[in-house]
């Protein structure tokens, strides 16, 4: 507990881990495509926190993780956009919000 309070980066990393865990649970529990997409975004944020926090905790301020996270955010935004486009087309075509395989299960 003391290390946690002493090191803000580690605290961020742990929060990130918590976020990932929560988001993963949501990802597994929900079948609505949009909810899953949201869960994925939260999961992404969590892992970025881990990436930056853990690295700074072990080896001090460091530009590399920042650059990586920046790339990661771009990728996440692009993926979300693509997912939304495809989802919207699919929703227009079928009126469903849950993928067929999940509906059966």
């Amino acid at each position: 507990m003391t290390t946690l309070l002493q090191s803000a980066p580690l605290f961020y990393a742990l929060v990130g881990a918590l976020l990932v865990a929560i988001a993963f649970t949501a990802f597994a529990a929900h079948t609505h495509v949009l909810r899953r997409l949201l869960a994925f975004n939260v999961m992404g944020t969590g892992s970025f926190l881990i990436l930056v926090g853990l690295a700074q905790h072990t080896r001090g301020p460091d530009p590399v993780p920042q650059a990586l996270v920046l790339t990661g955010i771009v990728v996440a935004v692009a993926s979300t956009a693509l997912a939304l486009v495809v989802f919207r087309r699919w929703y227009e075509a079928t009126g469903h919000v849950v993928l067929p395989e999940d509906e059966r299960a």
Binding site: V33, F40, S47, A55, T58, P65, A83
Partner: peptide, 28 residues
């Protein structure tokens, strides 16, 4: 379209798991 969505969700999950692993390796 539905196959693409399913593929996308699987791909995103997979690459996030990978990214988490990379984050841990970088920290180490």
């Amino acid at each position: 379209l539905s196959a693409a969505l399913r593929y996308l969700l699987a791909a995103l999950l997979g690459s996030l798991a990978y990214l988490l692993g990379v984050a841990l390796l970088y920290a180490e």
